[in-house]
């Protein structure tokens, strides 16, 4: 009989070669980055296309539009497909296609500043809240205060102080977005701070700021990315509502909201007057919502 090998070798030297080498990881199962994975879903792609088309239209407004946004022609309320005015003209004879395109441009300009501003302020508040319990209480009350005002009351109040124009719109949007970002980040920091790997980092000698920047924030940031997409949607609505109420960007400069607002009295005679801004806002909001939802699903896995 051949000697039987021992079941459990007493020393590592008795191990067969295949078992003696140091333990490696499994085959490379490095999953793709969650954001990239999220953006390659059908949902997100649809959203990206919708948003992309709108953004492109806005950027190329000077090229695509046949007229200046405030140029008046003799024809008012021209119908769809009128030569030279594919979307017709408004009550003052201005080309609707040009006004919608420049309106997109104006809207994008506003939300591209307002949302990052709101996000940055919200995150600053959240960091202050995470730093000290007293600051936390104060910040929480500030958020409550902002949220206590319905969006439009806030808009009217700011406009009453600053007068109508582009700046109040930007400020109102930024203000309205602060609590959403602030609360999300504050919550994320509080949750991550109790995680064991954060304790491990502190025991490992990492300083407070380093623990925050290197360990807590990257893990608390996921909901913020989703929130940005949501906030952009909200911002489009706020701008539209403010212009609609006449407290937004000053006429004659077009925005999506102001074009829609002007179309109101003519809805029976010229329904196509409202169609341009309506379709654009719908496409933009739908696209952003799809992207937000795709990001949300992927990061929550």
């Amino acid at each position: 009989m051949t000697p039987t090998p021992d079941l459990a070798p007493a020393s590592p030297e008795a191990l067969p070669d295949s078992l003696r080498k140091p333990v490696g990881a499994r085959k490379a199962v490095r999953p793709r980055h969650p954001y990239r994975a999220a953006l390659s879903t059908a949902r997100a792609r649809t959203g990206l296309v919708l948003v992309g088309v709108v953004v492109l239209a806005g950027l190329l407004a000077p090229v695509l539009a046949g007229h200046g946004p405030t140029d008046q022609s003799g024809q008012s309320l021209a119908a769809l497909g009128t030569p030279g005015h594919p979307l017709g003209t408004d009550d003052l004879g201005r080309d609707l296609l040009s006004r919608v395109l420049y309106g997109i441009r104006a809207d994008l300009g506003i939300i591209a500043i307002a949302v990052p501003l709101g996000a940055a302020l919200g995150c600053l508040f959240a960091l202050a809240a995470a730093a000290h319990p007293v600051a936390d209480t104060l910040v929480q009350r500030v958020f409550d205060l902002i949220l206590a005002f319905p969006g439009l009351i806030l808009a009217l109040a700011v406009t009453a102080i600053l007068g109508p124009g582009r700046l109040p719109v930007v400020l109102v949007i930024a203000l309205a977005e602060i609590p959403a970002f602030g609360r999300l980040l504050r919550g994320g920091i509080l949750v991550q701070r109790e995680r064991e790997y954060v304790t491990a980092a502190r025991v490992g000698g990492s300083s407070g700021p380093r623990v925050l920047v290197r360990h807590i924030l990257p893990n608390a940031a996921d909901p913020l990315i989703v929130q940005i997409a949501v906030s952009l949607t909200v911002a489009v609505f706020i701008e539209g509502a403010m212009s609609f109420l006449g407290v937004g960007v000053r006429p004659p400069e077009p925005t999506l909201g102001s074009v829609l607002s002007q179309s109101m009295p003519y809805l029976d005679q010229a329904p196509h007057f409202a169609a341009g801004p309506l379709i654009t806002v719908t496409a933009l909001v739908l696209g952003l919502s799809l992207i937000a939802e795709a990001l949300n699903r992927e990061t929550r896995r």
Binding site: E196, Y197, T199, A200, H215, P218, N219
Partner: peptide
């Protein structure tokens, strides 16, 4: 630490 899943920063 006890929990080898929770005590390593996943990022």
């Amino acid at each position: 630490f006890q929990d080898p899943y929770a005590s390593l920063n996943p990022r």
